[in-house]
Simulated scan of single mutants.
Amino acid sequence: MPAAGPVHEFLRALPLVDHHCHGVSTADLPPGRFEPLLTEGGAWPGVSPFDTPVGVAVRRHCAPLLDLPRHAPAADYLARRSDLGPHEVNRRFLTAAHVEALCVDTGYTPHPGTSPAELAGAAGATAHEVVRLERVAEELAARGVTAGAYAAGFRAAAEDAVHRPGVVAVKSVAAYRTGFALDPERPAAAEVTRAAGRWLARGGRLTDPVLVRHLLWTAVDLGLPLQLHTGFGDADLRLHHADPALLTDWLRLTAGTVPVLLLHCWPYHRQAAYLAAVFERVHLDVGLTLHHTGPARARAVLEEALEITPFRKLLYSSDAYGVAEFHHLGALSFRQGLAGMLQARVDADELSLSDALRIAAWTGRDNARRLYGLPENDPARD
């Protein structure tokens, strides 16, 4: 039975702004392709991804949207998903998420997958784009830029990308490529040229520390909100290099410039909360943590994230990728977790009800609207 109380009722009705997510697959996903998408670790021989906290949450909270009983067996779940087909599955889960706007990272997409407009159409929402800057740099390298022209070429390519209609932010995955233990200073032009020469001769992904620093400082120059992956991800990441506290010196140097959005953060969400509490332009979410824990533990994660975070600094994101279930499960976990926390504080007389409802609206929708300049009344909900 759903939890009751005025905060729960308010959050169930509140259309969310998902400030960081990805597209979903438009292909039929047989077990061998669906199951690896459930976890950051993929699928291992003899171990089902359904036998994880997120797998259990999918069977409990997503099965009813496929007309199955709660806790339906994995085989039944997969068979029903296949029977309905990807279009109907995506429509059901995206509609159930009840979002009014989606900020979509287009730098990492499932193939074949939804465009931002297709994702928003299935959700009954509006779409906005987040430009991944590493992809801009790698596309520039693929076009044959010279080392001497790299710095100016990257700046021009990034400016072209952010001036596309609907772009509201940029993103970096520096946490994956180098980690955050970087020299915080802006690199000199000659240093960038030498580093570009090394990278262009070697090829491959952008992993040079000097060029990653240059990318981050270029992001500041672009003037849009900057999203940074922090905390856990897949096995390509060295987790201890993704602690956002390592950004402290860089945040000091860039104070007063662009909003910095720390994505996901777990298990460093307390470090991220500290940064948000002491740096004016730092904000955070707990992102994919919510669907990986599911509603059973979402409240605990949000309680820790909000121990010292100013209430205008926490945003909602699903970081859903590949499977539409994560759009629904992320939103459900956020609503239930935040409502449980706020309602408990109201019941204990630690918050007034009006304060709790303001915090719920700020976190679920209005903080993102303000930071990204989104319209107050989204036409998708008129």
Rank of each mutant, 00 (worst) to 15 (best):
P6V: 06
A13H: 12
D18W: 03
H22Y: 01
A27N: 12
D28M: 12
G32K: 09
P36E: 03
E40C: 09
G41P: 03
G46T: 10
D51N: 14
V56N: 04
L65A: 06
L66D: 01
R80P: 06
S82E: 14
V89H: 06
R92W: 11
T95F: 08
A96L: 09
V104K: 07
T106Q: 02
G107D: 00
G113V: 03
T114V: 12
S115K: 07
V131Q: 01
V136D: 01
A141K: 08
A142L: 12
T146L: 12
A189V: 14
A189G: 13
R198L: 11
A201K: 12
R202W: 02
R205D: 09
W217E: 03
W217L: 08
T218M: 11
T218L: 11
L222V: 04
L224D: 03
H229C: 04
T230C: 15
P244K: 04
P244C: 05
A245D: 05
H264R: 04
P267M: 03
R270N: 07
A273G: 15
L302E: 05
L302W: 02
E303R: 14
E304C: 11
K313H: 15
S317C: 07
S318W: 01
D319Y: 03
Y321Q: 00
H327F: 15
A348Q: 14
L357W: 07
G364R: 02
R369L: 11
Y372N: 00
G373R: 08
L374P: 04
A380L: 03
